[in-house]
Amino acid sequence: MGRYSVRRYKTKRRTRDLDLIYGDLSTPESIQSLKHQPMDEYKAGLGQYYCVHCAKYFQDNKALASHLKSKIHKRRVKDLSVRPYDNLESEAATGTNLLKFMERVEHYKQSEPARKQMEDAVLATHLAENEEKDKILAAQLQAPQEEVAQENLDAPVKEVKMAD
């Protein structure tokens, strides 16, 4: 191992590959499961603010909203707008499985507009749903505090005698 071998593998900033994310975007159920994850204290923002296209967690809804407007996110969406390469495509380039590849291309041409429309419809309300979750969570956190304050007001006041 030479001294340059460490630079070759940048795993610190490695994200999920496009073909895996494309698979996540293939069904509405998988998108919904990623949008509504259970709370996890080891993830940023308790795992509630997730960008499906970039496979990243964010601290709050404001950070997610600014990310959705960023150049990095728009580039990732553009990369995901086309089907990623797979083994069948590489085999077709060499001349094998050409008929099977042509069938898949025709299927892709027919199903892709519907898939994009479904993806846009499911992700259109992403920020609004996060705002609703934040309001519900804030209401749940305020209710116990109000109960404790009410109990303190109802409790009898003890007189303290001071020694001279």
Results as ranks from 00 to 15, higher is better:
residue 2 G to P: 11
residue 2 G to D: 11
residue 3 R to V: 10
residue 3 R to F: 14
residue 3 R to W: 08
residue 4 Y to I: 10
residue 5 S to A: 12
residue 6 V to I: 12
residue 7 R to N: 13
residue 9 Y to T: 07
residue 11 T to A: 10
residue 13 R to D: 13
residue 17 D to R: 11
residue 21 I to Y: 00
residue 24 D to L: 11
residue 27 T to K: 13
residue 31 I to L: 05
residue 32 Q to L: 11
residue 32 Q to G: 10
residue 33 S to F: 07
residue 34 L to C: 09
residue 36 H to E: 13
residue 37 Q to N: 09
residue 39 M to N: 15
residue 41 E to V: 10
residue 42 Y to A: 05
residue 43 K to F: 01
residue 43 K to H: 06
residue 44 A to R: 09
residue 48 Q to T: 02
residue 54 C to A: 00
residue 55 A to K: 05
residue 56 K to A: 00
residue 59 Q to S: 08
residue 60 D to C: 06
residue 62 K to F: 08
residue 65 A to Y: 04
residue 66 S to A: 11
residue 66 S to C: 07
residue 67 H to P: 01
residue 69 K to R: 06
residue 74 K to F: 03
residue 77 V to R: 07
residue 79 D to R: 12
residue 81 S to G: 05
residue 83 R to E: 15
residue 86 D to P: 02
residue 88 L to P: 01
residue 91 E to C: 13
residue 93 A to M: 06
residue 94 T to R: 09
residue 98 L to R: 07
residue 104 R to W: 12
residue 106 E to H: 09
residue 106 E to W: 12
residue 107 H to L: 10
residue 107 H to W: 14
residue 107 H to D: 09
residue 109 K to W: 14
residue 110 Q to V: 05
residue 110 Q to Y: 14
residue 111 S to Q: 07
residue 114 A to G: 09
residue 116 K to C: 06
residue 120 D to L: 04
residue 121 A to I: 09
residue 121 A to W: 02
residue 123 L to A: 02
residue 126 H to N: 04
residue 126 H to T: 09
residue 127 L to M: 04
residue 129 E to M: 13
residue 133 K to Y: 04
residue 134 D to I: 02
residue 137 L to N: 08
residue 137 L to G: 04
residue 139 A to F: 04
residue 141 L to R: 14
residue 142 Q to P: 07
residue 145 Q to E: 08
residue 147 E to A: 10
residue 156 P to F: 03
residue 156 P to H: 03
residue 157 V to R: 08
residue 159 E to F: 11
residue 159 E to H: 15
residue 160 V to Q: 12
residue 161 K to F: 12
residue 162 M to G: 03
